[in-house]
Amino acid sequence: MYDVAVIGGGLLGCAVAYHLARAGTRVVLLEKDELNRHASGQNAGSLHFQLEYRMVADGDAAAERAARALPLHLDAQRAWAGLAAELDAPVEVVQHGGLMLAETADELDRLRRKASLERRHGLDVTVLTGAELTSLAPYLAAGVRGAAYAPGEGKANPRLVTLAYARAASRLGADLRTGTRVTALTREAGGWRLTTTPTAAGRGARTDGVRAAAVVLAAGVWTAELAAMADVRLPVVPVALSMTATAPTTPFLPHLVQHVGRRLSMKQTSDGNVLIGGGSPAKFRAVDGRIDLETAPELRYESLVGNADAARVVPAVLRLPVLRCWSGATTLTPDQLPVLGPLPRRPGLYAATGGSAFTLGPTYARLLAETLLTGEPSLPIDAYSPARFGFLNAV
Rank of each mutant, 00 (worst) to 15 (best):
Y165C: 09
V4T: 14
H48S: 14
L194H: 07
A214V: 00
D175R: 05
G361E: 00
E153N: 14
R22D: 13
A240E: 08
E92F: 06
F284D: 09
S116I: 00
L349N: 07
R203E: 11
P386E: 09
G341V: 08
R78I: 01
T374F: 08
S385I: 02
T207A: 15
T134E: 13
K155M: 14
D33L: 12
A67N: 06
D382P: 02
N157C: 12
K114C: 13
T197S: 15
D382N: 10
D382T: 11
A212G: 09
Y139L: 15
T246P: 15
A21M: 06
L194Q: 06
G13H: 04
L241A: 14
L70Y: 09
L83N: 03
L194A: 11
R346W: 02
N393P: 07
D75I: 00
P235C: 09
A148V: 01
G143C: 07
G209D: 07
T269K: 00
N43A: 10
T333N: 10
L293A: 05
L194D: 09
S170V: 01
S242R: 01
R345I: 01
A63L: 09
G328P: 02
A21T: 07
A44M: 10
A213N: 04
A200I: 04
R145Q: 15
A329F: 05
A39N: 10
T363E: 07
A213F: 00
A201Q: 13
V4R: 01
P347S: 13
P254G: 14
S135C: 06
R203L: 13
G272A: 10
A352C: 13
F358L: 13
V127C: 15
L29P: 10
A141M: 08
L72C: 13
W192P: 07
D75A: 15
I7F: 00
F252G: 08
R167P: 00
R54A: 13
Q258E: 09
T126K: 12
A5N: 06
C325A: 15
L108R: 12
G41Q: 02
F49G: 14
L318W: 06
T374D: 08
Q77R: 14
L293E: 03
A201I: 01
V313S: 15
D288H: 13
A247F: 11
L349A: 07
V16I: 12
P315H: 05
P198Q: 05
D208P: 03
E31H: 03
T371L: 15
H96W: 02
R290Y: 03
T104D: 12
G13T: 03
E92A: 15
L323I: 00
P377L: 04
A383I: 00
D124K: 10
I276L: 15
S46R: 01
